[in-house]
Simulated assay, not measured.
Amino acid sequence: MTETDVRTRTARDRLLQAAAILFYDDGIAATGIDAITQRAGVAKQSLYNNFASKAELVAAYIDHRHREWLDLYARRAEQAPTPVEKILAVFDAYGDHAECAYERGFRGCGLLNAAAELTSKEAGREAVRRHKEEVEAILVAELAEILPDDLDRAQTLAAHLAFLLEGAMVRAGLEGSAERVGQARAMARQMLEAL
């Protein structure tokens, strides 16, 4: 890797980190390119050397949030010995995301916040939908381990758990605390124990 590659990657990382903070705190529409480059400490041209447009930067931000959650889940799932614990790890990973050190406090799911600002035809909304579907697929896979002879029931229960999780995240965002996610986790455990 050349010195130029290192500088470019570093600038890209700094831009993405700055955008992630500003997009989450202020919203995508309210965050201009100048604010991102100023926060990243790079020249405006550096942004365009790394991202073709603000839309491309938004797409990278959405991908970053998705990967960040997957990493949180993977760490939790590694410590989960059973399918029930792996399901509860989904809730724990959402709680971990809610407990991150946000500059202006927790405002809810960064992906849903981003999707709310995008038009229905924008690729970013599709990426957020895919993330939510991937989370639900994790739930289905673990429930299929618990209910191997009833995939329909596993899918239905996964949808219920996904709705419980998303509702908890919305309330947690409104209240600025992960407490609702913890309550949803307890409800999910009760549902799973009833199986």
Rank of each mutant, 00 (worst) to 15 (best):
R67T: 13
A127V: 07
Q155W: 08
A162P: 02
A184V: 03
L70G: 08
V135Y: 07
A188S: 10
R76F: 10
L147G: 11
T156A: 14
L70Y: 13
V181P: 00
N113C: 12
Y102P: 04
Q155N: 12
R129Q: 15
A116K: 03
R125Q: 11
R189S: 07
R104H: 10
A172Y: 00
A186M: 03
H160I: 12
P83K: 06
E133N: 15
L111F: 11
S120D: 09
D152E: 14
A172S: 13
S177D: 02
L88G: 02
L111W: 05
L70K: 14
Y94R: 04
W69T: 02
E85Y: 08
E85W: 04
R153T: 14
L164Q: 10
I87C: 12
H97E: 15
E134M: 12
S177R: 04
A98Q: 03
E99L: 11
H131P: 06
F91A: 02
Q79M: 12
K121A: 10
L161P: 08
C109Q: 01
F91V: 06
V84I: 14
V84Q: 11
R180F: 00
L111E: 04
L70F: 15
G124A: 11
F91L: 08
L111S: 06
D71N: 13
D92M: 03
D150E: 10
L174I: 05
H131V: 06
E175M: 09
M187T: 08
G110N: 07
A178D: 04
R76E: 12
R104C: 05
L165T: 08
R104N: 08
S120Y: 11
A98H: 01
E166N: 13
A98E: 03
R107M: 07
L72P: 02
A162K: 07
A137Y: 01
A159S: 14
P148C: 04
F163C: 05
R76V: 03
A74F: 09
R76P: 01
V128N: 02
V181S: 00
G173L: 03
H97A: 15
G105K: 01
G110C: 10
R185D: 00
A159I: 10
Y94L: 06
Y102Q: 04
K86I: 10
A89G: 15
H97Q: 15
R185S: 00
R189K: 10
L72T: 05
A186K: 01
E122Y: 06
R180H: 04
A141W: 00
F163W: 09
A186Y: 00
A178Q: 01
E117A: 07
E134T: 09
R107H: 11
T82N: 06
D96A: 15
E117K: 04
A168D: 01
I87G: 06
A172P: 05
A172W: 00
E126C: 11
E117V: 09
T156V: 15
L151K: 08
R67I: 08
P83T: 13
A127H: 05
L164G: 09
A98D: 03
H97D: 15
L174D: 01
E103P: 14
G167S: 10
G95M: 02
A80W: 09
W69E: 02
V90D: 03
L88D: 02
A159L: 13
R75P: 00
A114W: 04
G124K: 01
N113F: 06
D96F: 01
T156D: 13
L72S: 12
C109H: 03
L143K: 08
D71M: 11
E133I: 12
V135S: 02
V135G: 05
R125Y: 05
H131D: 07
